[in-house]
Design a protein around this nucleic acid. Structure first.
Lengths: 342, 342
DNA sequence: TTGAAAGCGCTAACAA
DNA sequence: TTGTTAGCGCTTTCAA
């Protein structure tokens, strides 16, 4: 038994089934097989059948790298998140990914790790893949990364924040507004001694500033602030409350920059025998699914994360297909979901 | 002012800077510029400088699709997870992604959504990208997806489970062993009436079976089981405990298939005034970071998620670079972290 | 409706 | 050390 003739395939070929193989089997030209798969109504039913049959028999899977190179459309979308673990952003990513997948796009995920240097390297790596669009968590400050992104001409959607000068498209909400609203909410409930538990990031910063400002305007001058740095854990929340109470034992309300921190604050309060909300009111941020069913149920700032993901996907797909998007800035808002804890 | 001559670029070009432009600017052949960037020590220092300078001045970012097509190495790794939201797998993905990125690989993320149909479509889409490796959460049962993966010849690492017949590589642990160990642990503590709160998935199934079997062997014949289906929420945990107590009010220990479900069980128990662990012992699964700092602190089954991610990355990178991996099956084990709740 | 030719931007192979 | 040539597998363009 001799090997079947290598059908004059060059030595560089990877050996996998190609469109050429399918076309030969179907007895048509490669371009016709391509049309049968991509634009089936440009092809006669007879040819379509033959090609589809050949695909079946060979187990052919089109090489999207080659397709992307030839058509200058990669059908790849890149997403950048600070972190993936227990992150409030993952619901957005989940919806983004689902919507994209149903439209024939794949998602590339990059972690910026809350570090500017890493983010820059990441953006370079992303641009190298020539994605049809880029999803960014947060807004990108001026700098090398922003310049490169602008120069690349790739559609970009920034999210989870608002700015009058986005790179391209923007889907977010106002963190200052949240700070103000939560302060008003607590003040209206009669709380006097407000405190903040927050992580170190720019958006939490703006919520905190607006919160303190509004509190001051209403006669609450000293808002104790516990900054947990990058440690967004339950434990940090517990420790933060301890520090706050050491400084100001009469604190009667805390606004936390994440639900997990709020959970920590509540845990510590309960351990100290403080009644929630009678002695201490707690407000979280993110409204992750489980906080509604805790006991007491956590009052939190609700962001429609899934909505952000879906809209971002639709914007990116539209642009990838050459359609325009208007308006390019969308404020999805937020709401304070009042529950037992405040 | 006339436009600068279009430098005889064909009408199909996307207009972006290419290696050709860089090479011309540096006064060398494209392949030399390629070498300067990819294998700098194959090139004279003088040429290296000229090329690097040209890259700087043009802002050139190599097109990895073209590179991947030409070299048959995409430097892309695909990962499949059931879901990204608050999932215990995300720590693995985070480490996987970090390790890959540092080695020059990008991660593509796909969600199988705990559905076989979707998973198959996903695998097809993944294979179309010709990734250098594929990371799978769980093990892939025999079927079309498995066959296609095998046929593709792409290195695959299955994770979070054990089987004597992996597709290729495997990094996991024994779920049966966990079920047995947790049952023994609770029995040893003197608990008599055991119960299970579990989601509907195959791995939870095996933990549950082994748990019940071991309990039976020790004289505990009726293990009440509450199945929450696909609803892995705190609320489901609460409801599950309610159902269990309705059936068997004297239940004194519960093993949950996730920490979030355990949190629900604890919440419901506290709401009912049951003392933990005196009246009800609770064991979780996953040992996500925050359960250690709850009050009472949750006893849970610890999996070294980060370790799985890093090892998987190293396996995949090794194979992408043509190195072999031995052994191909790694049992990373688990441990029961005893805390207050049991 | 179908096909031939010519790339997309890069790198492997071979040669100098 | 550098360059020439010929693809990688697909799609655009143009022609029939």
């Amino acid at each position: 038994m001799t090997e079947p003739a290598p059908s004059k395939r060059s030595r560089r070929s990877s050996g996998a089934i190609t469109l050429r193989d399918v076309a030969m089997l179907a007895g048509v030209a490669p371009i016709t097989a391509s049309r049968a798969l991509n634009t089936p109504d440009q092809v006669s039913p007879e040819v379509l059948n033959k090609v589809l049959d050949a695909v079946q028999r060979t187990g052919y899977v089109p090489n999207r790298m080659a397709g992307g190179l030839a058509s200058a459309r990669s059908r790849l979308i890149a997403a950048v998140v600070p972190s993936t673990v227990a992150s409030v952003f993952m619901e957005t990513i989940e919806t983004l990914n689902d919507t994209l997948f149903d439209a024939g796009y794949q998602l590339m995920l990059g972690q910026s790790g809350y570090s500017a240097v890493r983010e820059e390297a990441l953006l370079e790596a992303i641009i190298g893949r020539r994605p049809d669009g880029i999803f960014l968590t947060g807004i990108l400050p001026p700098g090398k990364g922003r310049t490169r992104l602008l120069a690349s001409g790739i559609p970009v959607v920034e999210t989870w924040d608002l700015t009058p000068t986005p790179i391209d498209m923007l889907i977010g909400f106002s963190h200052s507004e949240i700070g103000r609203e939560v302060a008003r909410y607590l003040l209206n409930k009669g709380h006097q001694k407000l405190a903040l538990v927050r992580a170190e990031d720019e958006r939490a910063d703006r919520r905190a500033s607006a919160f303190k400002e509004t509190a001051a305007q209403h006669g609450c001058r000293t808002v104790i602030e516990a900054n947990v740095g990058a440690s967004r854990t339950l434990k940090s929340g517990r420790e933060a409350l301890s520090r706050i109470l050491a400084q100001a034992p009469d604190t009667d309300a805390v606004f936390c920059s994440s639900d997990l921190l709020a959970l920590g604050v509540m845990t510590e309060a309960k351990a100290r025998g403080l009644a929630i909300p009678e002695q201490l009111a707690v407000v979280g941020f993110g409204d992750v699914p489980f906080v509604a069913d805790m006991s007491p149920a956590l009052t939190s700032v609700r962001i429609n994360s899934a909505d952000i993901g879906q809209q971002a996907a639709q914007f990116l797909i539209a642009r990838a297909e050459g359609r325009e998007v208007t308006p390019r800035i969308v404020d999805v808002g937020f709401s304070i979901v009042a529950r037992d804890s405040a």
